[in-house]
């Protein structure tokens, strides 16, 4: 079961998570420790990177209209900032006493804090990106809802003209997202639903066209054409609802089920 649910987050955090785990194990195995080297330059580099992240983070918050992002990101940034202070304190303590056990604990705590805070920040950012895709999916659902008012060929042309770019954008975004996920089951679910949407779209347009022609011709075939059209609309809508559901899943959801 992957720990990080996107390849981007995994690529950023896995190497540092590995290093922190090693340090924790070494600390537990050799409680008294060896003399620590001067870590002040390395800590200074971390602090500069933290300052830059905080600046970029608040710029992102200020430029976003996503209220959840505005709510979720500041605590993560504060966590990273606090953790960097722990690292500075640890480094100062170790310079005074390279064998200091409390300094080592502070170093571990600071490293874990950086890891946890950066992880929370990346998750908040990632969730915000997912919400952008969800909005596109919902706009497709809104277009599908107006299928029932399409009753002329002119309406159909306008409908197809409006629907096509939104569906294309949705499939492109969901396809990219699917490739980003580390969770194989979620990827397969998205692939399956996306494939269904791709296959059903021409069937839907054809169904609307048959309905329009039947309606103009009159007769008993109208009801069947309407039923077929509505059935296809329902199937496409169901697949998009499934895409929306899966996009919001993280690996943790399934762990909870287990």
């Amino acid at each position: 079961m992957p720990v990080f649910h996107t390849k981007t987050i995994e690529g950023i955090l896995e190497p540092v998570a590995l290093q922190v785990s090693k340090l924790v194990i070494l600390h537990e195995e050799a409680e008294d420790g060896n003399a620590m080297p001067d870590l002040s330059y390395a800590v200074h580099v971390v602090k500069n990177a933290v300052d830059n992240l905080v600046k970029v983070g608040y710029d992102t918050i200020n430029n976003s209209d996503d209220q959840l992002l505005k709510q979720d990101m500041p605590p993560a940034l504060q966590r990273v900032e606090e953790a960097s202070l722990y690292l500075i304190q640890a480094s100062d303590m170790l310079r005074a006493d390279p064998f200091s056990a409390p300094a080592r604990k502070k170093l571990i705590e600071g490293s874990r804090g950086i890891l946890g805070g950066t992880s929370a920040l990346l998750l908040a950012f990632d969730e915000s990106e997912v919400r952008k895709i969800l909005r596109i999916c919902k706009s497709v659902l809104e277009y599908l809802a107006i299928t029932e008012v399409v009753d002329s060929m002119d309406d159909l042309v306008t409908f197809v003209k409006n629907l096509s770019p939104v569906i294309t954008r949705m499939t492109k975004e969901v396809d990219s997202r699917e490739k980003e996920l580390t969770h194989q089951v979620h990827r397969e679910m998205l692939q399956r639903s996306l494939e269904q949407v791709k296959q059903l779209t021409p069937i839907l347009i054809s169904g609307i066209k048959i309905y329009v022609i039947s309606k103009q011709a009159g007769g008993p075939a109208v009801q069947d054409a309407q039923d077929n059209r509505d059935y296809t609309v329902q199937k496409v809508s169901n697949e998009i609802h499934e895409i929306i559901r899966v996009l919001q899943l993280t690996t943790y959801d399934e762990d909870e089920w287990d």
Binding site: T8, I12, L13, P15, V16, L18, Q19, V20, K22, L23, L26, H27, E29, A30, G33, N34, A35, M36, P37, L39, A42, V43, V45, V46, N48, A49, V50, N52, L53, V56, G57, D59, T60, V80, L87, R104, L107, S111, I114, L115, T118, L121, L122, F125
Partner: peptide, 29 residues
């Protein structure tokens, strides 16, 4: 995205810091 680049820099800097600390510890283990 700038935020991903900034996070990458922090992760790399933290990994380097922790690696230095681990190397010192490992000498004893």
């Amino acid at each position: 995205e700038q935020i991903l680049e900034a996070a990458k820099s922090i992760a790399a800097a933290t990994a380097a810091l922790v690696k230095s600390a681990s190397a010192a510890q490992r000498e004893l283990v």
